[in-house]
Computed example of a mutant assay.
Amino acid sequence: MPEIVGERLDVALSDIERAGFDEEVEVLGGGTFGVLDESNWTVCSQEPVSGEEITSAPRITVDRSCKGDDQGDPEAAESDEAADDQAVAAQRKKEKKRKQKAVAAVSDTFVMPALVGMNLQEAQNRLQARGSFLLTQTDGTGQERFQMLDYNWKVCGQRPAAGTVTDVATLVELVAVKLSESC
Rank of each mutant, 00 (worst) to 15 (best):
K67M: 04
D70M: 09
D37F: 12
N125M: 15
V116M: 06
R98L: 10
N119S: 02
A57R: 03
T55L: 12
P48V: 00
V35T: 14
R92D: 11
D80A: 15
P48K: 01
D80K: 10
R145K: 09
G72V: 10
S132K: 06
C66L: 00
S50C: 07
M148P: 04
E53H: 07
Q124R: 14
S50K: 07
F21Q: 01
R126T: 15
M148Q: 15
G72S: 13
W41D: 08
E53K: 12
K101A: 14
T109R: 06
M112N: 08
V49E: 11
K67V: 04
K99V: 07
V88D: 12
P113E: 09
P160T: 04
F133R: 02
C156E: 03
T138S: 03
Q137T: 11
Q71K: 09
D150G: 11
E23H: 02
G68V: 05
D150P: 13
D73W: 05
Q124P: 02
E52Q: 11
G142C: 09
V27Y: 12
Q71H: 11
C66D: 00
G34S: 09
V116I: 11
V103Q: 11
G31F: 15
G29R: 12
K154N: 04
F33A: 15
A57D: 04
A90V: 01
K97E: 15
V155T: 04
S65R: 14
T109P: 03
R126K: 15
G157W: 05
V49K: 05
G142Q: 09
R145Y: 01
R159F: 07
M112V: 07
F133S: 03
Y151E: 13
D69K: 10
S39Q: 07
A83N: 03
W41H: 06
A82G: 05
Q158V: 05
Q158N: 07
L36A: 14
K96R: 15
D22N: 10
C66A: 00
S50N: 09
T138D: 04
G142M: 08
E75G: 11
S107Q: 03
A87L: 01
G140T: 01
E24A: 05
K154S: 04
T109L: 01
N125I: 08
Q86A: 12
Q124T: 14
S56M: 05
M148R: 15
D63W: 05
V116T: 13
V25G: 07
A102Y: 11
E75I: 08
T136G: 02
F133D: 02
E24Y: 00
S39G: 05
S39W: 04
Q71A: 12
E26G: 00
A77W: 02
N125W: 12
A114V: 01
V116E: 13
L36D: 14
L149W: 13
S107H: 06
E47D: 07
E24C: 00
V106L: 15
N119F: 00
T42M: 13
K154D: 02
S132F: 03
K93P: 01
N152L: 14
Y151C: 03
R92A: 08
Q121P: 05
E52M: 05
N125K: 14
R126P: 03
G142R: 10
R92P: 02
C44T: 02
Q124F: 08
A104N: 08
E53F: 06
Q100W: 11
T138N: 04
A123N: 09
S107T: 05
K99M: 10
V106N: 06
